[in-house]
């Protein structure tokens, strides 16, 4: 089984602008993944499919993930002039990390009985640049799964033969699996005294729920 480093090396040779990055996985299983630039994704998949040693022929799983914008606090030591002396002062810098949507693919090889190879792709942002290439023409198993990602996360797959909502009805406008999705205000009371639910119940009865 080829390691991911070898794949990146080979792909770097044959693909002009591969834009591959190895993503580490700190969990005990340690299955790492490759972050691929959307422009070279299909080429990389074809390369891995045609490689004799890797020979992926089975796309098992397609997952969408939402990473909303978040503020990452970073502590940096900055040299400052304090009372004429140069001093190191710890400062907290707040970086606004732009949100994006991610798609993760798990590939296996049935012929070699090996895998998984995990590839991931990211969109530019969460609103406008949400188009990614579709893998359905190469692997039919992505058909329903990409439709699911489109339905629940709102990622548009270019080249998908029949991209429309799969679970929700066509008139539905939201992308419910996104982290900032607001549920419709449709239940009245909850006997369990969870604070979150109680606040919600109160809002419901007072009638000032924005989702109503």
């Amino acid at each position: 089984m080829k390691s991911l480093e070898e794949i990146i090396k080979t792909a770097g040779h044959s693909l002009e602008k591969a834009g591959l990055e190895l993503i580490d996985n700190p969990s005990p299983c340690g299955e790492r993944s490759i972050l691929v630039d959307p422009s070279s994704f299909l080429a990389l998949v074809e390369l891995m499919r045609d490689d004799d040693e890797i020979g992926i022929d089975y796309l098992s799983n397609v997952t969408g993930v939402d990473w909303p914008e978040k503020i990452v606090k970073e502590k940096v030591k900055v040299k400052e002039m304090v009372d004429g002396k140069e001093k190191e002062v710890a400062q907290t810098i707040e970086n606004n990390v732009g949100g994006y949507l991610e798609v993760i693919y798990h590939f296996y090889s049935v012929q070699h009985k090996s895998g998984p190879w995990t590839l991931r792709m990211r969109t530019g942002d969460r609103e406008e640049k949400v188009t990614l290439p579709s893998i359905t023409p190469i692997f039919q198993s992505a058909d329903f799964q990409e439709r699911e990602v489109f339905d629940l996360y709102g990622i548009r797959f270019e080249g998908h033969p029949d991209l429309r909502r799969i679970f929700m009805w066509d008139e539905f406008e939201d992308y419910p699996m996104r982290k900032d999705y607001e549920d419709p205000d449709d239940y009245e009371y909850e006997p369990t005294p969870h604070k979150k639910v109680l606040v919600r119940t109160q809002r419901h009865y007072e009638g000032n729920d924005p989702g109503k």
Partner: peptide, 9 residues
């Protein structure tokens, strides 16, 4: 669990 990811089948 510690941060990370896993795919089990």
């Amino acid at each position: 669990p510690k941060p990370g990811e896993a795919y089990g089948r």
